[in-house]
């Protein structure tokens, strides 16, 4: 069987989680590879969460927030953006491809955008193959 990646998706409570819910209520279909985790704001996502997810078996991690300027908490998503830049460097040091972690924006009304982001990410990680775990 071909490799099916597992992707952890951190979503903020206000935009992206609701966008994902909307994809559901609209009965859109997307890759079943994603594992959702709700946080209140993308600004809450600590780099250690991402590292933990990768260690615990995820082959990729998506962080989804509100669009820039639309954050429920004014600018938490900008903080997520800054943190992500740092994390990318950290991942490189750990020898993890930076494509495995991605930050994106989904509004509460963008069910279809959520679907395409998730599908794209899944396809990308599937190409990259499983994350080699330190044993």
């Amino acid at each position: 069987m071909s490799f099916e990646p597992v992707i952890a998706v951190f979503m903020c409570n206000w935009c992206s989680y609701r966008g994902a819910d909307l994809a559901g209520t609209s009965r859109m279909k997307y890759a079943p590879n994603v594992r959702p985790i709700r946080v209140k704001c993308s600004g809450r996502v600590e780099p250690t969460f991402i590292v933990q997810a990768l260690q615990a078996g995820a082959d990729g991690v998506l962080v989804l927030g509100c669009h820039p300027g639309d954050c429920h908490y004014t600018d938490g998503n900008y903080k997520a953006m800054r943190r992500m830049a740092l994390l990318t460097r950290m991942l490189e040091q750990l020898g993890i491809e930076k494509e495995r972690v991605s930050l994106d924006w989904v509004s509460a009304s963008e069910g279809s955008r959520f679907v395409s982001i998730v599908n794209d990410m899944t396809a990308r990680i599937r190409k990259l193959g499983p994350l080699a775990k330190e044993s």
Partner: peptide, 8 residues
């Protein structure tokens, strides 16, 4: 408001 930015 509990956004958690400071926590992170």
């Amino acid at each position: 408001k509990g956004c958690g930015t400071c926590v992170a």
